[in-house]
């Protein structure tokens, strides 16, 4: 799997920590705001907002929080909104398993990653046991 790169020519729109559950709400509303700014339709806005809400909650529940990077960039000629979630949590031992439909960690996130992946145009994940997880999702019009 390719490493998630932080060396991009993307415009940073903000970097925020997820510490409390209020942050989940606040930052997903910010993501919606940026999706609106990017003139995405209401369904697209809802998809990206819901996707990041799932990711933020994963960080909050399993990794004691993390950081969210919101960026805007050109992906294959498209104007994309890019949200990267970075945590220093326990990591995901078997990524392939975690990405397979119907998988549940047993802690109540059965739709988790595959469901989130369906809501976005691009989904990248990188995880190392005991080091943490990085998930990057992209959405364009």
């Amino acid at each position: 799997m390719n490493e998630i790169s932080f060396d991009n020519n993307w415009e940073q729109l903000g970097k925020y920590p997820i510490v409390t559950e209020h942050d989940i709400v606040k930052i997903r509303q910010l993501v919606r705001h940026h999706a609106k700014e990017a003139r995405m339709g209401i369904v697209e806005q809802t998809r990206i907002t819901t996707a990041v809400s799932e990711l933020f909650r994963n960080m909050f529940n399993y990794a004691e929080g993390g950081d969210v990077l919101i960026e805007r960039g050109n992906i294959d000629g498209k104007n994309a909104l890019i949200v990267t979630c970075i945590d220093q949590g326990p990591g995901i031992e078997d990524l392939e398993l975690a990405m397979s439909d119907g998988y549940t960690s047993g802690m109540g996130m059965g739709y988790g990653l595959p469901g989130t992946k369906r809501l976005v145009d691009r989904f990248e994940i990188q995880s190392e046991k005991d080091k943490g997880t990085i998930v990057r999702v992209m959405k364009w019009r």
Partner: peptide, 12 residues
């Protein structure tokens, strides 16, 4: 809202 219904189904 329709957009919420669509998203819920896609999410699974």
């Amino acid at each position: 809202q329709p957009s919420v219904a669509i998203t819920l189904v896609e999410l699974g």
